[in-house]
């Protein structure tokens, strides 16, 4: 391989290695590059597309997957629960938007004089913001799960604080009599609260299991 071809190939590989997190590149970048160059055929000037795809996949995996050992089952279970919570939030948003006509019929039967303008105000003022909030909450569940999986302690604390806020909101809603007029909302809120509770308990169990090991 001519020096110019080798330099071109190395530059190409380095470009694709940018898919990996900076810290991983700092520790393993040159090592991976050595493997790539050793496996490259004579005279190659550009990375093979299959190799590029493999580097993209590897880089994304390194960015997204949790840095939690397989032996730490409690933390992995908590991350699974958080993904379930995100899925439930998304399901709630989708079902709310998919059943908007049913909601209109129910509102119209309770308020026979409902005009189109009033209904559009309900959609814009309540239904769409609620669906958007559920999507944002799903994103928050996933983001915190990612942060906990990467070992950020603040994320576990933030999740516990959110659970406390959610508990207060739920109790406040129940005391305000929301169960009497929004049974569907209440059911999904209780389900999500239970998933949060299970997540917080599992995270605490994982922490309790790690601490004696750290003290040794």
């Amino acid at each position: 391989m001519t020096p110019a071809a080798a330099a071109d190939l190395e530059r190409g590989y380095r470009r694709w290695l940018r898919w990996y997190p900076r810290s991983f590149r700092r520790e393993h970048g040159d090592e991976i590059l050595a493997v790539l160059l050793a496996g490259a055929g004579q005279g190659r000037r550009r990375p093979d597309p299959v190799e590029c795809l493999d580097l993209v996949r590897g880089g994304l995996r390194m960015r997204l997957r949790p840095s939690v050992p397989s032996s730490d089952r409690s933390t992995r279970r908590a991350l699974g629960l958080m993904c379930l919570g995100a899925a439930l939030e998304l399901a709630a948003a989708i079902s709310l938007l998919a059943t908007v006509d049913d909601v209109r019929s129910a509102v119209a039967s309770a308020n026979p004089g409902l005009t189109d303008g009033e209904w559009h105000a309900v959609v814009a003022g309540h239904i769409e913001p609620t669906a958007l909030a559920a999507c944002a909450a799903a994103g928050l569940w996933l983001w915190l799960a990612w942060a906990i999986g990467r070992g950020h302690r603040w994320a576990g604390i933030a999740f516990a604080v959110l659970w406390c806020v959610n508990t207060y909101g739920l109790v406040d809603g129940l005391a305000g009599g929301s169960a009497a007029y929004a049974r569907g909302d209440l059911a999904i809120a209780i389900l999500l609260w239970l998933v949060q509770l299970a997540t917080v308990a599992t995270l605490l169990a994982a922490r309790a299991r790690r601490q004696p090991l750290a003290r040794r």
């Binding site: 090592e31 190799e51 580097l55 996949r57 590897g58």
Partner: peptide, 11 residues
């Protein structure tokens, strides 16, 4: 094994 797969597995 390709490099990306190898280093994901090693990590």
């Amino acid at each position: 094994l390709r490099a990306g797969t190898l280093y994901s597995a090693l990590d």
